[in-house]
């Protein structure tokens, strides 16, 4: 009978829950339903024109080269950052977790970029990536090629530049999550494996990685949801350019819906994003669950 009072229903229960219930209805459910309804209309905020047009918005979106580009860029961004972020995070976590001196200090330093405002980070990198900036100096020092006009002004490097920044920024956060998972692995497993003469590589494969799996799934889904919503970086650094090479779905939604006020069209794009995220998160769950590492 521990911990639970089997009382009758009290009005205080409802009252205590009401802040969440109101928030849920007003700021979560209502917008989602409104978004769904709006995406089947051609609502224009300015003229007030509003009529039901069925799936026209969706058809128009898929023949809109800017939107198609936005979807592709968002996919490239997610697929291109995810493996790096996760691999770096796992490697760092294992490194930090193995009796590293000043462990807490280093752990905090690696994590630091994730708590600074994204706007600040994007502003710093805009300058770092500029013509003649530090990153160009670094690359020319080691003899690598770079676009002389600056990374954010070249069609081929703008998106990769933002992706690299994102990996740099979020690695520390996921490292922390993996450290948490590593700490939950019982030390006896390693001791037993050592007694049996298993090498470091074998212990990694047989013990560490399998135990990281639940966290890996969590990180995968979390990072996918986050990556698909990339907006601030684009707004601060490139505004979608050059040649739409950094146009992302959320930026497209913002431009169409809140800049040009094609509310219905923007909402339809947002719903496609929603579906994409749900689909990919589902695929990730299936993949990780089924593959018995």
């Amino acid at each position: 009978m521990r911990g639970v009072s089997v009382g009758r229903f009290r009005s205080s229960d409802l009252l205590m829950l009401s802040p969440w219930l109101v928030t849920l209805l007003l700021f979560w459910l209502f917008p989602i339903i409104a978004s769904l309804v709006l995406s089947f209309t051609d609502y224009q905020l300015l003229s007030g024109h509003n009529s039901f047009i069925g799936v026209d918005n969706f058809i128009a979106l898929f023949s809109d080269p800017t939107f198609v580009r936005a979807v592709l860029n968002t996919l490239v961004f997610t697929v291109g950052t995810l493996p790096f972020t996760i691999i770096f995070a796992i490697v760092l976590a294992i490194f930090v977790n193995r009796n590293l001196p000043f462990k807490t200090f280093f752990q905090s330093v690696y994590f630091f970029p994730s708590i600074v405002s994204l706007v600040v980070v994007a502003l710093i990198y805009s300058t770092l990536y500029a013509r003649g900036g530090y990153i160009q100096m670094l690359l020319s020092a080691v003899g690598l090629a770079y676009p002389p006009e600056g990374f954010l002004f070249s069609e081929n490097t703008a998106l990769p530049a933002i992706m690299a920044m994102d990996v740099w920024m979020s690695t520390g956060y996921y490292m922390l999550l993996f450290v948490a998972a590593l700490q939950s692995i019982p030390q006896e497993l390693y001791d037993a494996a050592s007694l049996e003469g298993a090498g470091a590589w074998h212990r990694l494969k047989a013990i560490t990685l399998p135990h990281l799996k639940p966290m890996l799934l969590f990180v995968l889904v979390l990072n996918t949801i986050k990556s698909f919503q990339i907006f601030v970086e684009v707004f601060v650094m490139t505004k979608g350019g050059p040649l739409n090479s950094t146009m992302t779905i959320v930026y497209f939604v913002y431009e169409e819906g809140l800049h040009k006020f094609n509310i219905g069209y923007g909402a339809a794009a947002a719903n496609i994003l929603f579906l994409l995220i749900a689909l990919i998160a589902w695929v990730e769950m299936k993949l990780v669950q089924e593959r018995q590492i």
């Binding site: 905020l45 300015l46 003229s47 007030g48 809140l258 800049h259 006020f261």
Partner: peptide, 9 residues
């Protein structure tokens, strides 16, 4: 621009 549009709409 947005603010005016809303107010007028």
């Amino acid at each position: 621009h947005e603010k005016i549009a809303i107010a007028l709409s």
